[in-house]
């Protein structure tokens, strides 16, 4: 028992970094994705094209490769980011690409009549988007967003490749030292706890927004 507690403490330290990356990614990528989605749906054509290419690249290549690129690859251009900076940047850009497409489909699913009603009431573009369209689109995009939010918990494990000590690496260190699978079981429990929290947050949100259908 004492053994389990001691390795749990160690893994918990790694968990802190996992959470940091998680929240930085959410806080950075969601607003960016909303802005990009608006750019795709109501910006000029070239912007839509450019953002389409952005989505194609970042959804079409492995996150691992992107992580390598931002951490190692950029040094060739004389830019060297600290591990956390590189990880945050990669995750934000990658997740913003996915979330942009999710929000775009959400925005496009809103009935044209909503825009017309807002327009007839003389609401401006931003008033219409912010107060009428996005809240409804947000609700519709909750289920696919839940998937992304869960995937992100697990994707954070990828930062080990640029030498960061997150949850899974802490577990692996103990495994290497003691040669027992206990740390992996504990790591799995941690991941399950984290994803359960995520699922519950989204479920609560969905429930709360159910009032109007």
């Amino acid at each position: 028992m004492e053994y389990i507690l001691s390795i749990t403490g160690h893994i918990l330290k790694g968990c802190g970094l996992t959470l940091q990356i998680y929240f930085v990614t959410v806080i950075g990528s969601v607003p960016l994705a909303i802005l990009f989605a608006l750019g795709r749906t109501s910006g000029p054509k070239f912007l839509d094209k450019a953002l389409g290419i952005y989505a194609w690249i970042f959804r079409g290549t492995p996150l691992l490769l992107q992580l390598f690129f931002f951490y190692y690859g950029l040094t060739i251009f004389g830019i060297s980011l600290p591990p956390f900076g590189a990880a945050a940047l990669t995750f934000i850009i990658n997740y913003a690409a996915y979330m942009m497409e999710i929000f775009r489909s959400g925005i496009q699913s809103i009935d044209k009549g909503q825009y017309e009603a807002a327009r007839a009431l003389n609401m401006s573009y931003w008033q219409t988007m912010w107060r009428i369209i996005l809240p409804q689109a947000f609700k519709r995009t909750l289920p696919p967003s839940t998937n992304e939010a869960i995937t992100l918990v697990k994707d954070t494990a990828l930062v080990v490749v640029i030498g960061m000590g997150e949850l899974l690496r802490s577990a692996k260190e103990i495994f290497t030292r003691d040669f027992t699978i206990t740390p992996f079981v504990i790591a799995a429990i941690f991941y399950l706890l984290l994803t359960s929290v995520v699922i519950n947050v989204f479920r609560t949100l969905e429930k709360k927004l159910e009032v109007y259908d």
């Binding site: 017309e116 009603a117 009431l121 003389n122 609401m123 008033q127 927004l209 109007y212």
Partner: peptide, 25 residues
Amino acid sequence: MVFQHFNLFPHKTVLENVIEAPLVV
């Protein structure tokens, strides 16, 4: 304007629908 398909804002209550534009616009 009044529309054939009403086009009320579904995420807002009846009262909120009416006060939305006066407040925001």
